[in-house]
């Protein structure tokens, strides 16, 4: 612990200096507070948000909870569809070749560009938001599951064949476990996409959720609230990602050489 302290000290000191300079810059009129809200304002904004709420009555915690539920619904739904479908597509070369252009195309379409169309389909309610998040997560997850199942080291398959494994048993005992690290990597990437989509998805038809909070703050020139929203999304994303990494360490202790994929 003592040894690590000096390593984290310099960036902390740098950050502190930056924040103090920022604060002073606003106090002495060099920076406009609605363009660069200082720390003191962000702090008081946070107190306001967690007591009175913004808009009045909707606290920061209820915004957070709303967003979290939407992201998780879309995310879990996308995973539940993408994993079995990806396993099937990845198992048959024909299916992979047939669907590859579609998967690449759909994954490349910026999810939020679908917003107008999805509103036409599902209205401006909950379903639209969950659908958009799900859409973003789904294609990222699907392409990773397909790749994981499809590109299993052929020497492992050969080895398994020398022990008399074939067909379903080969698939269950060798192909699936070999694909798991890639599937986990896909799950982590998809989560990132989910949080990227949420702000846009909450722009319309709601006053609840962190995305709505950020947009609403803009209307009232409350830039410090935008920053609070950003920070909370960042913290949640970081926490869930760390949770997934921990889960992977627990479930796949053998895949320790995948640190590069992990980020």
């Amino acid at each position: 612990m003592m040894r690590r302290f000096p390593q984290i000290a310099p960036p902390l000191i740098a950050l502190a200096i930056l924040l103090v300079a920022w604060e002073l810059g606003v106090r002495y009129g060099f920076l406009k507070p609605y363009q660069f809200p200082p720390v003191s304002r962000i702090a008081s904004g946070f107190v306001e948000l967690s007591t009175i709420g913004f808009p009045t009555g909707v606290s920061i915690w209820s915004h957070t909870l709303t967003t979290l539920v939407r992201v998780l619904l879309g995310y879990v739904g996308a995973l539940a569809l993408a994993i079995p479908l990806g396993v099937v597509i990845g198992s048959f070369q024909v299916l992979d070749k047939l669907t590859a252009p579609l998967v690449v195309f759909c994954r490349s379409v910026a999810t939020l560009s679908l917003l107008p169309l999805v509103i036409v389909w599902f209205g401006a309610g909950e379903l639209t938001k969950v659908f958009l998040i799900g859409y973003g997560c789904f294609w990222v997850m699907l392409s990773n599951v397909i790749a994981g199942v499809r590109y299993v080291d052929p020497v492992l398959v050969r080895a398994a064949r020398t022990f008399g494994l074939h067909g379903g048993e080969l698939f269950r005992r060798v192909v699936l476990p070999a694909a798991l690290p890639r599937i986990f990597a896909g799950a982590r990437m998809a989560l990132g996409v989910g949080f990227m989509v949420i702000v846009g998805a909450e722009m319309i038809g709601t006053i609840e959720g962190l995305g709505a909070l950020i947009m609403e703050a803009r209307t009232f020139y409350r830039s410090e609230i935008t920053i609070i929203g950003m920070l909370i999304i960042g913290v949640i994303g970081f926490a869930i990602s760390a949770g997934l990494t921990a889960l992977e360490r627990l479930l796949l202790p053998w895949a320790g050489n995948l640190d590069a994929v992990r980020r």
Partner: peptide, 11 residues
Amino acid sequence: VVFQQHALFPW
């Protein structure tokens, strides 16, 4: 069979 690259199952 013993392969050139170890073909052990990493899991």
